[in-house]
Design a protein around this nucleic acid. Structure first.
Lengths: 259, 259
DNA sequence: GTTATAAATCACAATTATTCTGATTATTTT
DNA sequence: AAAATAATCAGAATAATTGTGATTTATAAC
């Protein structure tokens, strides 16, 4: 169903290894070789890749999981989480986009699913600061692509700038599509302060402001307060979002349910 | 010698085809099949790729070369021209960079060769608007990478913005490394106006301003005047540059010869 | 408009190149 | 010195490229 989930033998094994390391916290290579039913050599190669992507930490004797906060905000990790939900959200969100419009996308995997749907969509202007989105959209001749500059963040794989350094103030788009790390009692949160500033600036640039959020974000907080949900004109949720959350959000904004 | 030249069978054949189309101007697919000694189907697939990269134009019945000016300023074309010279220039230019410095690179293949040398160079801040440079430098942990935003240009594979839209005014770097399309009688030129504005803004941002130029650029003009060579504090040339050009440049700036 | 014809695309099978894996050997770390 | 990791390499698995023939599309003639 989900085309974004790689299903090669190696990707599958690496997922197994990652889950195992996450649960166990710290494991030896030999133990992983037993789990994955392959040679230690292969384990080492897989772990090198995972370590390179910043998902685990290798040390002499084995491998360990990273602190949760760092881990969960890393692009590579978010990339493989709940893709079905993200695709549902994207399919719902694209209903509000029409050829000729200008839109802004933040540096989230949720919104990346939306970018994938824009191929052959028609003429459209897309503004973003997310590198993977550039990769996808630079191949679409119909898409006028504008990049928000800034300092490259390896954990987010995007360009982050303090307001006034990126040129973002010069743009006004028809719709801006954002994601959030977590939401609790109608307030959205994110791990990092710089990202919050960037997202706030993006929010400001849109006429219509969409929040795309799957149920996994709900009921938690992160270090930095982003904005109250009422700052969004529209919120797109999955159909597995708790009823009480939906009702609460309906009081302050327009809610759309993706099925 | 040059690792940037691909040597797979397909790449080699496409180069042959491109050269043939360039020389002939307009050819049928059947004729190309004879030249490359392969099926017409393969020719079509190759031409689709070349057309996608903006190097040729397909039409029902065959394929034709693009107008020279558009063609020569396209990133993909420049990518495969005179790499040895560019690498020489880059090796000379890097002598003026030291760990801890901040530098700016424009969207030229010449300067890309310089970016490749920055791996394991030490801590350094690099500002650029060139996508291939991002690809290379995003993998270097020691490099703090800052992107200048703007509208994505498929022909240049970079982000172009009018001054004041990119945030470039906020930066001041130790050295800026630029390239030029052509040079004639001490004046540099470029095909496109937007690019000229972008390069001028970059020039303004550097304390020391380097022009990297191989001999193929000399003695021609392009549509838009960029700046006089005297606007650069330093010019790096290949050792095959005509003596009279070198002497002429020495009168207005510091000249370095790459061997 | 319609049709004839060449050209281009599509779908599939065969081939070719590339990547991946695990046994072995060498090197590093503690 | 012992264990762990990295390097090397041949065979296996995987992916890519290619050509054939059928199908669709575009051009030109009627």
């Amino acid at each position: 169903m989900s085309m974004t989930e790689p299903t090669t033998a190696r990707a599958l094994r690496q997922r197994t290894l990652l889950d195992y390391v996450l649960k166990a916290g710290s494991v030896t290579s030999a133990e992983l070789a037993t789990v994955a039913e392959c040679s230690i050599m292969t384990i080492h190669r897989d772990l090198d890749e995972l370590a390179n992507r910043g998902l685990v930490r290798k040390f002499h004797g084995g491998v360990s999981a990273l602190p949760t906060s760092v881990f969960e905000s890393s692009s590579a990790f978010r990339m493989r989480r709940g893709n079905e939900a993200k695709e549902k959200l994207a399919r719902e969100a694209i209903k509000f986009i029409e050829p000729g419009m200008s839109i802004m996308l933040d540096d989230s995997t949720t919104v990346l699913a939306l970018a994938r749907l824009l191929n052959d969509f028609g003429p459209i202007t897309v503004i973003t600061n997310y590198r993977p989105a550039i990769e996808i959209l630079s191949d679409c001749p119909d898409v006028r692509l504008i990049i928000l500059g800034g300092t490259y963040s390896r954990t987010h794989d995007s360009f982050i700038g303090v307001p006034n350094m990126t040129g973002i103030e010069n743009y006004a788009v028809d719709a801006v599509f954002l994601s959030t790390s977590t939401m609790h009692e109608g307030i959205t949160y994110h791990q990092e302060h710089d990202v919050v500033l960037m997202k706030r600036a993006m929010l400001h640039a849109g006429t219509r402001k969409f929040l795309l959020m799957d149920e996994s974000k709900i009921g938690k907080t992160s270090l930095n307060r982003f904005v109250p949900a009422s700052d969004f004109t529209d919120v797109v949720l999955t159909d597995e979002t708790p009823k009480e959350v939906i009702n609460q959000l309906r009081e302050v904004t327009t809610v759309h349910i993706a099925r």
